[in-house]
Amino acid sequence: MFVNLTLGIVKLAGGVLGGSFALISDAINSLGDSLTSIVVIFGLWYAQRPADEEHPYGHTRAEAVAASNVSMLIMISAVFVGWEAIRRLGTVHATPPVWTMWIAAINMVIKESLFWYKLTISRQTKSLSIAASAWDHRSDALCSLAVLLGLAIVRWGGPSYMWADETAAIVVVLAILINTSRMFRQSTSELLDPQADEELIQQIRAAAESVPGVCAVEKLWVRKTGIEFLADIHIEVDAQLTVEAGHRIGHRVKDKLIEQFAQLRDVLVHLEPYPHEPPPSP
């Protein structure tokens, strides 16, 4: 948040003083990132609140809600900037000084470094909002590259190439819209309870089947909630066992899965008789 705020102020000052709308557009993007960082921080904090009577599954969905709102805010800002860039096409203005190119180049290096840092953190934590923020840094780095190229064309092409500054701003907007729309789809998809990836499903299934007394796994549903997962598993046990014996097996399955898979927040175990026979047709 501090880096984005600093870059945003520097680029805004450079764009205004240097007469570069592309740099101003990039500055608005960074200043918007500072605001959205606050939203992400709040979402991650709220997601860690414990479960209560009204929210027995916890508040982890707040993380996905924060990510979707971040994406929407960035897209709205990009549309506004894009409209201003289109409106300015063909407008005659002074050639931006060479130091505006240095601002764009330094910003590109910083943003690319932040992208790799946050991408590593998101892979370790499985956090969607941090991943969204990481790709926003990559988008910013590419945007700064477009700004740098646009300024270079204006500097060395002369007054007849003034359109390159606004064109660079439009490229910035298109890059932002493409990346943030992908982030928005991912975050909203999480709110619809999609099944976890097949590799994790198979690992959980194998771990459950290795518990003594488990004859087979009939059903296994694993859904992501925030940076964690919830699992619903139907295990088949000997039909002649007592309820108490079956209950103990179910608890052993739950304990093993939660111990083995740190990302599992909770496991709901349902017992089925083995061999399992489907219910008769009506």
Results as ranks from 00 to 15, higher is better:
residue 137 H to W: 10
residue 96 P to G: 10
residue 149 L to I: 15
residue 242 T to M: 08
residue 65 V to S: 01
residue 204 I to G: 03
residue 105 A to G: 07
residue 163 W to N: 06
residue 160 S to L: 08
residue 242 T to R: 09
residue 115 F to C: 01
residue 117 Y to T: 14
residue 266 D to M: 03
residue 6 T to M: 12
residue 101 M to N: 10
residue 234 H to N: 13
residue 211 V to M: 05
residue 9 I to T: 11
residue 253 V to G: 11
residue 199 E to W: 00
residue 20 S to G: 04
residue 85 A to N: 04
residue 39 V to F: 04
residue 125 T to V: 10
residue 270 H to S: 07
residue 159 P to W: 08
residue 31 L to M: 12
residue 9 I to H: 03
residue 113 S to R: 11
residue 80 F to D: 08
residue 223 R to G: 01
residue 225 T to L: 12
residue 192 L to K: 08
residue 274 Y to C: 14
residue 196 A to Q: 12
residue 210 S to P: 01
residue 277 E to S: 06
residue 33 D to Q: 09
residue 1 M to H: 02
residue 1 M to E: 11
residue 37 S to L: 07
residue 129 S to E: 04
residue 148 L to H: 02
residue 2 F to I: 15
residue 188 T to K: 07
residue 90 G to S: 08
residue 57 Y to F: 15
residue 172 V to H: 01
residue 235 I to W: 07
residue 234 H to D: 14
residue 173 V to D: 03
residue 101 M to F: 01
residue 237 V to F: 11
residue 263 Q to V: 09
residue 267 V to W: 06
residue 50 P to I: 06
residue 57 Y to M: 09
residue 226 G to P: 02
residue 251 H to V: 01
residue 155 R to Q: 12
residue 90 G to M: 07
residue 33 D to V: 11
residue 204 I to W: 01
residue 126 K to G: 05
residue 107 N to V: 15
residue 6 T to F: 15
residue 190 E to S: 07
residue 243 V to C: 03
residue 86 I to T: 05
residue 264 L to M: 08
residue 198 E to F: 01
residue 66 A to E: 05
residue 237 V to G: 07
residue 94 A to I: 07
residue 151 L to Y: 10
residue 238 D to C: 04
residue 263 Q to S: 14
residue 114 L to F: 08
residue 16 V to Y: 14
residue 121 I to E: 13
residue 142 L to S: 04
residue 73 L to Q: 04
residue 240 Q to K: 13
residue 77 S to F: 01
residue 90 G to A: 10
residue 159 P to Y: 09
residue 26 D to T: 02
residue 27 A to Y: 10
residue 280 P to T: 04
residue 202 Q to K: 13
residue 155 R to M: 10
residue 132 A to D: 05
residue 119 L to Q: 14
residue 24 I to W: 11
residue 134 A to E: 04
residue 138 R to C: 00
residue 23 L to W: 09
residue 199 E to L: 11
residue 117 Y to K: 15
residue 17 L to W: 15
residue 27 A to C: 07
residue 206 A to E: 14
residue 266 D to H: 11
residue 163 W to G: 03
residue 201 I to H: 13
residue 247 H to Q: 12
residue 250 G to M: 05
residue 33 D to R: 05
residue 227 I to Y: 00
residue 94 A to N: 06
residue 56 P to W: 07
residue 56 P to Y: 08
residue 65 V to Y: 12
residue 46 Y to V: 05
residue 66 A to Y: 02
residue 57 Y to P: 01
residue 68 S to C: 09
residue 267 V to I: 06
residue 238 D to W: 02
residue 163 W to A: 11
residue 213 G to M: 05
residue 97 P to R: 12
residue 48 Q to F: 00
residue 126 K to C: 02
residue 190 E to M: 11
residue 59 H to L: 05
residue 246 G to L: 12
residue 182 R to M: 15
residue 212 P to G: 03
residue 139 S to D: 02
residue 59 H to E: 07
residue 247 H to Y: 03
residue 21 F to P: 05
residue 261 F to E: 12
residue 195 Q to V: 02
residue 186 Q to G: 12
residue 74 I to T: 13
residue 24 I to Q: 15
residue 60 T to W: 11
residue 240 Q to F: 00
residue 131 A to Y: 02
residue 84 E to K: 13
residue 40 V to Q: 02
residue 101 M to Q: 13
residue 222 V to P: 09
residue 101 M to S: 08
residue 79 V to G: 09
residue 106 I to F: 15
residue 171 V to D: 04
residue 153 I to D: 01
residue 4 N to E: 09
residue 167 T to Q: 03
residue 260 Q to C: 04
residue 35 L to G: 15
residue 232 D to K: 13
residue 268 L to W: 09
